[in-house]
Design a protein around this nucleic acid. Structure first.
Lengths: 192, 192
DNA sequence: CCTTAATGATAGTTATTACTTACTTACACT
DNA sequence: AGTGTAAGTAAGTAATAACTATCATTAAGG
């Protein structure tokens, strides 16, 4: 049944994200998803195949990143702010996948590249295009759009990691205000 | 002998960084360091203790981050550039430790916090102080120095990850130029 | 020459893991 | 009533892991 399959995949996502590929056990995944180990192997022939299915299943599609296009209507500063928040939110919603990305970037290189691409690389390109467009309209000054995009997104990646990957207390500064402060620097640094 | 001990620790660092804690095996570590497994366990009573010793051994001391103080003599822009390069270089030289940091941030939380602190958090504080100082002298405008520091370092973390953790081809743009471009944005964004 | 310390060699223990085989149960549809 | 499908139960296999016990070897120092 489709329900069983999904329960296994969800439990597997959690388990892989908590313990890494080698650390996760089919026994625990079966227990959490409330099926027997035999059933698990009936759906997915091996742990490796289960892993691949997990990644593909939860990989965000091209709609992740759509918000850049949506933000284009806004004023430059507002657009950046909106993009930053959506990006941060997107990272948060894909927390399990991101943990896997970091843990398995060595051993499951090609699979992880897909995650990285879907979450970050694609956005990089879209954002760079946005910068190019604004440069054409002389709204912002000339700089390498791809570098600018990498820098802009990089800021939030680091913010995200500190808070969600390493669970470091973000201190007294609230994220919203921190984002605004960073945007201010970036806007001043890039405007014509 | 001290040499044997160090050989084991070095091999262990590599192994943990390649395969993660659970993925690494005492057998392989022994093989690479050219001792028998028995010897390994004579020096370190368990895999867990070996792991702790590896982290402590290769943890960078407070001299990592010293370069911020050294850069203070320079012009603002040059100082930032120098800091960025030293930071990136420092990350590169601690590549194995950083891999471990990402892979084990879930399971060895307290140990990993030490790595994060030594590599990033301490620097954050030092850099924030530098910004505060410059704000006092009216060289740069007022902004939350701690947020500014986090943003500044965050950029390079993301650059580093893309290139060294995920081994993504950085494309045609060379790192040196990319760094300069980002610094330009940051300087314009923060100057008085 | 004898002792001590550092290491090797060999073998074994216990636990766990991914994965399998064979048989059974429960339920839905015809 | 009978059949097929999705799942459970029980038991087991082969490999591998961390870790231990025992004894032998080597080399340096008194």
């Amino acid at each position: 049944m489709e329900d069983t399959r999904n329960r296994i995949l969800k439990a597997a996502l959690e388990s892989f994200s908590k313990h890494g590929y080698t650390g996760a056990t089919t026994r625990e995944i079966a227990r959490v998803s409330e099926v027997t180990e035999v059933t698990l192997f009936r759906y997915f022939q091996s742990k490796e195949k289960l892993f691949e299915n997990v990644v593909c299943k939860f990989l965000p599609g091209p709609e992740f990143g759509q918000f850049v296009s949506n933000a284009k209507e806004l004023d430059y500063r507002q657009a950046l702010e909106s993009i930053a928040h959506f990006f941060l939110e997107g990272l948060k919603q894909n927390e399990d996948l991101i943990r896997i990305l970091y843990m398995e970037s060595q051993r499951h290189y090609e699979l992880m590249e897909q995650i990285y691409s879907a979450l970050i690389n694609n956005l990089n390109v879209i954002l760079a295009d946005y910068f190019t467009e604004l440069q054409g309209k002389n709204i912002i000054r000339r700089f390498d759009p791809s570098v600018g995009a990498k820098m802009f997104l990089g800021i939030w990646i680091a913010f995200y990691e500190e808070e969600h990957l390493f669970a470091i207390d973000p201190g007294k500064v609230k994220t919203v205000e921190a984002v605004r402060e960073c945007i201010e620097i970036f806007v001043r640094g890039t405007q014509a």
